[in-house]
C-alpha cells in the first residue's frame, strides 16, 4: 500500500481518572490515503478529539497509550523520540483545533504567531511576513497585511477559524487534521469555510482528516467516513455507501437526525434517545445495545467485530451476520 499516508492500527487509549481507567479509544483502526478526505463522525464524548490529539501525541498528562500503532508513512509515531515528533508537527502534519476562540495565544499578535510557526524556514522576516499575509488572503481575510498586527481578540470567531486554517496550511502539510472546525460557526460561515477548505485541498493536494458531528458537512466534503461510537469504530466506508446503505443502527439514527444537507443544518445537534455508556465502566456485549431498537440476545453476550461487508465498507453489528437473518 504505497499510497497510504496514515494508518491507525488497533489503537487503544485510556485516561487515568479517580474512578479508574476511562477507556476513551478501543481498538481503533482505519487508514487515510494520500490526498484523500476522511471524515470522522460521532456524538460528543465518543473520543474524536482524543483520537486526533493521540496522532500528534499532544494529549493530556493522564493519557495512557495501551495498545496499537499510529503509522505515518509507515513509521509508528507512538515510538518516535520527542525530537523527531516535533519535527513532524506543523510541518508534515498540521492540526486545526476545535475551539477557535481559545486556539491562538491571546497576548501575541497574529503576525507574530504566524512568524513563529515558520521557525523551520530560512526566509527573511519580511518574506515570512509576506507569506503570512498571503495565507490570510487565501483564506479570505480582507486587508491581510494590516491585520497581521492585530491580536486574536480583535477577530471574530469565524475569522479566527480561518486564521487557524491558514496557519495549518502554511507549511503545505501532507496531512491536515481539522477538529470540528465549523461547529462553533453559523451555517453560512460554515458553508464558506467548507468551500474554502475544498479549494485549498485541491491547491495544496493534502490529505484531510475532518472531524465533525454534522453529517451534512461530511457528505459534502469527504471521500470516506468513519463512524465512531463510545470510543470504537462502528462503521466505515465510502461516503455514498454509508449514506445510501448504512449497516449499523447507530449510523442510521445519525442520518435520521441529520439528513445530510449542508445548507439545511439541523438547528440542534443530532440527539438519539439514551446515553453513551460510562467509558470507565463498560458493559459487556455490543456497546450500542442500550440504545439499539434491534438488539438481540446475542448482542448482550458478545461484542460484534468490525467486519468487512463489501469492498471498503465495514460495520460492527450482529445484524449483518447471516445467522441474524434466520
Amino acid at each position: 500500500m504505497t499510497d497510504t499516508l496514515l494508518e491507525i492500527d488497533r489503537l487503544s487509549v485510556d485516561y487515568e481518572t479517580a474512578r479508574g481507567d476511562l477507556k476513551a479509544l478501543r481498538d481503533i483502526s482505519f487508514d487515510v490515503r494520500k490526498g484523500e478526505i476522511v471524515g470522522i463522525v460521532g456524538e460528543s464524548g465518543c473520543g474524536k478529539s482524543t483520537l486526533i490529539s493521540s496522532i500528534l501525541r499532544l494529549t493530556a498528562p493522564n493519557t495512557r497509550f495501551r495498545q496499537g500503532e499510529v503509522r505515518f508513512r509507515g513509521e509508528d509515531l507512538l515510538q518516535l523520540p520527542e525530537r523527531k515528533m516535533r519535527d513532524l508537527r506543523g510541518a508534515d502534519i498540521s492540526i486545526v483545533f476545535q475551539d477557535p476562540m481559545q486556539t491562538h495565544n491571546p497576548v501575541l499578535s497574529i503576525g507574530q504567531q504566524m512568524l513563529d510557526i515558520q521557525h523551520r524556514s530560512k526566509a527573511s522576516k519580511a518574506d515570512k511576513r509576506a507569506r503570512a499575509a498571503q495565507m490570510l488572503g487565501a483564506v479570505g481575510i480582507p486587508d491581510p497585511e494590516a491585520r497581521l498586527d492585530q491580536f486574536p481578540h480583535e477577530f471574530s470567531g469565524g475569522m479566527r477559524q480561518r486564521i487557524a486554517i491558514a496557519m495549518a496550511l502554511m507549511s503545505e502539510p501532507d496531512l491536515l487534521i481539522a477538529d470540528e472546525p465549523t461547529t462553533a460557526l453559523d451555517a453560512t460561515l460554515e458553508v464558506q469555510i467548507i468551500e474554502r477548505l475544498q479549494e485549498l485541498q485541491q491547491e495544496f493536494d493534502c490529505a484531510i482528516l475532518f472531524i465533525s458531528h454534522h453529517l451534512g458537512v461530511i457528505a459534502e466534503l469527504c471521500d470516506r467516513v468513519v463512524v465512531m461510537y463510545a470510543g470504537a469504530v462502528v462503521e466505515s466506508g465510502e461516503v455514498r455507501e454509508i449514506f445510501h446503505d448504512p449497516k449499523h443502527p447507530y449510523t442510521r439514527r445519525l442520518i435520521d437526525c441529520d439528513p445530510g444537507h449542508i445548507k439545511e443544518r439541523a438547528r440542534v445537534l443530532p440527539t438519539i434517545p439514551g446515553e453513551v455508556p460510562d467509558l470507565a465502566n463498560l458493559p459487556g456485549g455490543c456497546i450500542f445495545r442500550d440504545r439499539c431498537d434491534q438488539a438481540m440476545p446475542r448482542c448482550a453476550a458478545e461484542v460484534p467485530p468490525l467486519e468487512q461487508l463489501k469492498d471498503g465498507h465495514q460495520a460492527a453489528c450482529w445484524l449483518n451476520h447471516k445467522e441474524a437473518a434466520e
Binding site: L56, L58, R89, Q102
Partner: peptide, 17 residues
C-alpha cells in the same frame, strides 16, 4: 493547560519558547 499552548506545540515550536 490552555488550548493555545497545545496549538503552539502542534506547530513544533520549541518547548523553551
Amino acid at each position: 493547560g490552555e488550548s493555545h499552548i497545545r496549538t503552539a506545540r502542534a506547530f513544533g515550536i520549541h518547548e523553551r519558547r
